[in-house]
Structures are given as C-alpha cells and as structure tokens.
Simulated assay, not measured.
Amino acid sequence: MFGLFNLFKKKYIYPKRTIPQYSGYNLLLAEEIVLLRESLKQHVSPPPPDLIEHTSTRLVWRISLTGKEDQYMKYDKPNYVHDNDFLVYVDTELLYLLLLNDALISNDKTNYSCKLRRDLPDDDKYPYAEEGFSKGITWPVSLATINMDVVENKPSISFTDGITRTIWLIANYASSFPVYTNSLDSANNLNIIAGLTDEPISVCDMFKNT
C-alpha cells in the first residue's frame, strides 16, 4: 500500500496495490515511493526556511540545499492582502512523496505529474529555474502557488504557478521551503501532510504592524 497514513500520521487513504500491478514508468514511481517511504521512517523534520528579510513590502527566505550554496525566495506584498492568503513551510521530502503518490494514482494525465528525482532536470523548463535561482540573494525567486484538494479522501496537488521552481528545489535536495496558497482549506490540507508549523501562516498576520 502506497498510502501516507502511517508515514504522515494522517487520515488520507490510497488504493491498495502491489508493485507488480504497475508497469512502465508507473512501476518506477511505485518503487521510488517504497524506497522513499522506507528512508523517511528515520527522517528528522528539517527546520523551517530562514526568514532573513521582513519588511512592509516583502518577505525573503534563505533556502538550504544539501551540498550546495543556499538559495533565496521571496513573497512580495500584493496591493491587497486577502484573508485567505496563506504560506506553508513544507518539508521537501514529504512534498516529494505526496507528489509521487499523486502522480501514481492520478487519472488526469493532462496535468503535471511528478517524475523521479533523477529525471526532474530533464523537464523542458528546468533551465529557466536553474537560471532564476542562480541570481542568489540579489534577485530572490518568487514562491510557487500551490492548491491542494482532498477528493474521495485522497489528497491531490495542482499548481497555479511555480511548478518548475518546485521540481528544481526537489531535484536539488532543498531541506524545506515556503509556498503560497490562496485558500484556507488548501493551506490546511497541505500543512497537515507536509507542513513544518502547527498551522499555516497568515499573510495578513505577517504584514501586520510592519
């Protein structure tokens, strides 16, 4: 079973299938999920990304990568901050596992499906993310916008923006990073499975009194 119940200590259900029932690339995904779940049994949650700039107009975080230089991400304050604007600090490995599961069980193959980590750099837009992150602290990269629904008790992720940035961070073993979502339900769903804080972070609260 490639469910997240035990690993994430959560309530979501995945179909009971064994590896031999998959074929082709789905078989490789299933095998990767098994290996990742096993390694995550010893996983220690990383610290949240380091907020290094907090002004009245923007937030900037330092993102730690395994064996590489730190990178930087930003959130620019919009003209109007909505009550449903939230940030979630995600554990990269848990998000990767979630995306792999989503890719394996998804019936909608028109949407982006996560690939094996080794194959992520083959994405056509990957060089653009590489270039964006190469600018360092002088030009931080914007946060991805993620939506997470739960359909028939199964979590499903979609991106409004920032797919390539996200797969770049996964491919380069970021320990954790922030994402943006404009729905409280989406923020709660994502935070329950892959978040590093007790609750999603309200954008309104972040810019209050700044």
Results as ranks from 00 to 15, higher is better:
residue 19 I to A: 04
residue 139 W to M: 15
residue 137 I to F: 06
residue 2 F to P: 02
residue 61 W to N: 14
residue 136 G to C: 09
residue 104 L to Q: 12
residue 119 D to H: 09
residue 28 L to D: 02
residue 178 P to V: 00
residue 54 H to W: 15
residue 176 S to Q: 11
residue 100 L to P: 02
residue 63 I to E: 14
residue 9 K to L: 00
residue 154 K to N: 07
residue 120 L to E: 11
residue 182 N to G: 08
residue 150 V to R: 10
residue 62 R to H: 08
residue 153 N to G: 09
residue 108 D to M: 04
residue 149 D to K: 12
residue 81 V to C: 02
residue 55 T to M: 04
residue 85 D to P: 01
residue 25 Y to M: 03
residue 161 D to L: 06
residue 169 L to E: 12
residue 166 T to I: 13
residue 20 P to G: 05
residue 146 I to M: 07
residue 203 V to Y: 01
residue 118 R to L: 07
residue 63 I to F: 11
residue 208 K to W: 02
residue 69 E to S: 13
residue 98 L to K: 01
residue 30 A to W: 00
residue 185 D to M: 00
residue 130 E to Q: 13
residue 203 V to H: 07
residue 176 S to F: 09
residue 108 D to A: 05
residue 79 N to L: 05
residue 198 D to C: 15
residue 193 I to W: 10
residue 121 P to N: 00
residue 103 A to W: 03
residue 210 T to S: 13
residue 9 K to A: 09
residue 134 S to F: 08
residue 126 Y to E: 06
residue 128 Y to S: 15
residue 206 M to I: 05
residue 35 L to S: 15
residue 107 N to F: 03
residue 131 E to N: 14
residue 208 K to Y: 09
residue 133 F to Y: 12
residue 114 C to A: 13
residue 135 K to L: 12
residue 1 M to K: 03
residue 72 Y to M: 06
residue 38 E to Y: 09
residue 182 N to F: 05
residue 58 R to A: 05
residue 15 P to Y: 01
residue 160 T to A: 12
residue 33 I to V: 03
residue 113 S to C: 07
residue 163 I to V: 15
residue 205 D to T: 10
residue 89 Y to N: 11
residue 120 L to I: 07
residue 210 T to P: 03
residue 102 D to Q: 09
residue 82 H to W: 06
residue 84 N to A: 08
residue 40 L to A: 09
residue 208 K to P: 00
residue 184 L to M: 15
residue 64 S to P: 04
residue 186 S to P: 02
residue 201 I to G: 12
residue 86 F to K: 10
residue 175 S to H: 12
residue 194 A to C: 06
residue 97 L to A: 08
residue 183 S to D: 04
residue 169 L to Y: 03
residue 184 L to G: 10
residue 177 F to D: 08
residue 130 E to W: 03
residue 186 S to M: 12
residue 103 A to S: 15
residue 150 V to P: 04
residue 5 F to S: 08
residue 172 N to T: 11
residue 11 K to N: 10
residue 28 L to Y: 03
residue 166 T to F: 10
residue 32 E to P: 04
residue 172 N to Y: 09
residue 33 I to C: 01
residue 107 N to M: 10
residue 123 D to N: 11
residue 139 W to D: 15
residue 20 P to R: 01
residue 48 P to M: 07
residue 90 V to H: 15
residue 85 D to F: 02
residue 81 V to N: 05
residue 166 T to W: 11
residue 53 E to T: 10
residue 160 T to M: 09
